[in-house]
Design a protein around this nucleic acid. Structure first.
Lengths: 152, 152
DNA sequence: TCCGTTTCATTCGTCTACGAACGGTGCGGG
DNA sequence: CCCGCACCGTTCGTAGACGAATGAAACGGA
């Protein structure tokens, strides 16, 4: 069952050699590492990870939201969200409460400290973006963002 | 959306609103999740993760290589590489040995099973790429790969 | 009203990611 | 020859990511 002619997708006659460093998954992984490192540098002092920031920022937009729902909005699965919510709560950035109308839901709300942190971080957001995209021109950056949005 | 002068915008302080879903880090993280999921689907049966594959593929290119060195080539830090190498060794895809010329180095070599697995997976590599980039045209895909290569 | 289905949160296990600290090894200079 | 420095691998702690399983709550249809 070897070499099934590659799913008959496109018969690319170019036969470009298979180079690991050109594979999309590899490139995305490296870019993710670099972007995370830059986030950490710029957001230094807030002691909040990129994922935690995503949750906080979305919570800031939406207002009190259930754990699963919030996770769904930012691409964090329930198992991971459980840990993220717990850590944010432990740091006093978020406070959990049971929804009075649905005992299954754990509503997360920003605390005052959480709101302050989010707003400070949102102000720095553009710096993270700028530094991450620094090797690219304005137009290239916009293209990259658009293309990534379509494969996400 | 605004008018169609968006493309020509140069230094116009547009004051675009800060939208989490447009931030480069967020997009990369989501893309990474999707790419990993596709890898897992396509490479089903090999029971090898994307990171393990990267290590195996590079080892296949280089021949026996020390742990740290191999990790450096594929963006895996020493602490992580330790775990990856251990799991690959446990599965018999790789065999570790101490470099005779430098007792600090742990040389990793592909086993016969490892070589077979890598070669099978390399053959499937293009399928992963194609499926991940499926929403894009050929040209857009090439652009994305080029741009990612520059911010990684 | 009762029961099956869905949804939610939680838990467990495995894997990546990385900072920090540690001891062992190699190497170059004094 | 010895010492300090650099590098290697290892270990620990913390944090995401996700499949799978579980129990509680809500919901919908009969």
């Amino acid at each position: 069952m070897t070499a099934k002619r590659a799913k008959a997708t496109q018969e690319t006659p170019q036969e470009r050699p298979y180079v690991l460093e050109e594979q999309i998954g590899f490139l995305i992984r490296r870019a993710h590492q670099r972007a995370s490192a830059i986030f950490e540098q710029v957001m230094d002092g807030f002691d909040v990870t990129p994922v935690q920031y995503a949750a906080l920022a979305k919570l800031h937009d939406l207002g009190p939201t259930s754990q699963n729902q919030l996770g769904r909005m930012v691409g964090i699965d329930p198992a991971t969200m459980f840990g993220v919510a717990g850590r944010l709560a432990k740091r006093g950035l978020v406070s959990p409460s049971v929804d009075p109308n649905d005992a299954r839901l754990v509503l997360l709300s920003l605390t005052a400290a959480g709101r302050e942190a989010v707003e400070g971080m949102k102000a720095l957001g553009p710096v993270v973006t700028a530094r991450t995209l620094e090797p690219l021109s304005e137009e290239e950056a916009a293209t990259l963002i658009a293309l990534l949005g379509r494969i996400g």
